[in-house]
């Protein structure tokens, strides 16, 4: 089973101080640690598990700057065969639609049975690239996938999707297909430092706009359907009330408040 996985190199904002750039269209990156977007890490693991069971090869793709090689190398260290990075100044300002278009151009002539993406990226959380990419590639998709079952040489596979209220939906899907992978579907393996160092020897293919059959107007801001107006940090409003007194007094006061507010 040949699999293409799309990943994104994003800032890990664990307890980090987030500051907005002066142009209000991004965050300041100094001092931030970058890593693979969490759901994409699960997508990589799912691809590795499928490969271990059915054979085939995995290609990892990213649209991003040179620093994204760190994420690609981590994927190579885990057992991915090929990696390619799509980098071009003219891609800058691409929204989810234009990003999906860049990926679609890179993927469309490849041989694959499955395309995997994370369900959404940790930074913009838009959850659109995967499903848009499926549409552009003209293949079926399933989003929010929480488990996969495949059989040797079958042209269909079974996937479970997570729905609201704890429901699971089971789908059969025709291959090739695109799945957006939900976190928790597996336990991603660890990429050791020695493994990553060894992966330094593997080639990362670098593609720019001229390598794709795309016009300049099809990417970047010109090729986007949405444009980012501004980013801001919501104003913190202090609305907490601290109740004081004995447990009996506090609980009765709390009950009164909840009743008055129409919560219970």
């Amino acid at each position: 089973m040949d699999i293409v996985v799309c990943v994104k190199h994003v800032p890990d904002t664990t307890e980090a101080e987030i500051a907005i750039r002066d142009d209000e269209r991004g965050i300041k990156q100094a001092g931030l640690v970058f890593d693979i977007s969490e759901a994409d890490n699960y997508a990589i693991e799912e691809a590795l598990l499928l490969k271990e069971e059915f054979g085939g090869s995995i290609t990892v793709l990213t649209v991003g700057p040179e620093e994204a090689d760190e994420t690609l190398r981590m994927c190579l260290a885990k057992g991915v065969e090929q990696a390619a990075r799509l980098t071009d100044e003219r891609f800058e300002g691409s929204d989810s639609f234009a990003t999906a278009r860049v990926l679609a151009e890179a993927i469309k002539d490849m041989d694959y049975d499955l395309v995997l993406t994370g369900v959404q990226a940790d930074d913009d959380g838009s959850a659109q690239v995967g499903v848009t990419l499926a549409e552009m590639l003209g293949i079926p998709h399933a989003a929010l996938v929480v488990s996969t079952e495949a059989e040797e040489d079958e042209d269909r596979m079974t996937v479970h999707r997570e729905l609201e209220g704890g429901l699971h939906e089971v789908l059969e899907i025709e291959l090739p297909a695109l799945l957006t992978i939900q976190t928790g579907i597996n336990e991603p393996r660890y990429a050791s430092i020695f493994g990553i160092r060894k992966a330094m020897k593997k080639q990362i293919e670098i593609l720019d706009l001229d390598d794709l059959e795309l016009a300049e107007e099809a990417v970047g801001e010109a090729g986007s359907k949405t444009s980012l107006v501004k980013l801001f940090i919501p104003v913190v409003t202090a609305q907490a009330t601290i109740l004081e007194g004995s447990p009996e007094e506090v609980s009765s006061e709390l009950a009164t408040i909840l009743k008055n507010e129409g919560v219970v």
């Binding site: 260290a77 336990e187 393996r189 660890y190 493994g195």
Partner: peptide, 8 residues
Amino acid sequence: TEGGRVKP
């Protein structure tokens, strides 16, 4: 560990 097989 170097093979990536460690507890979460």
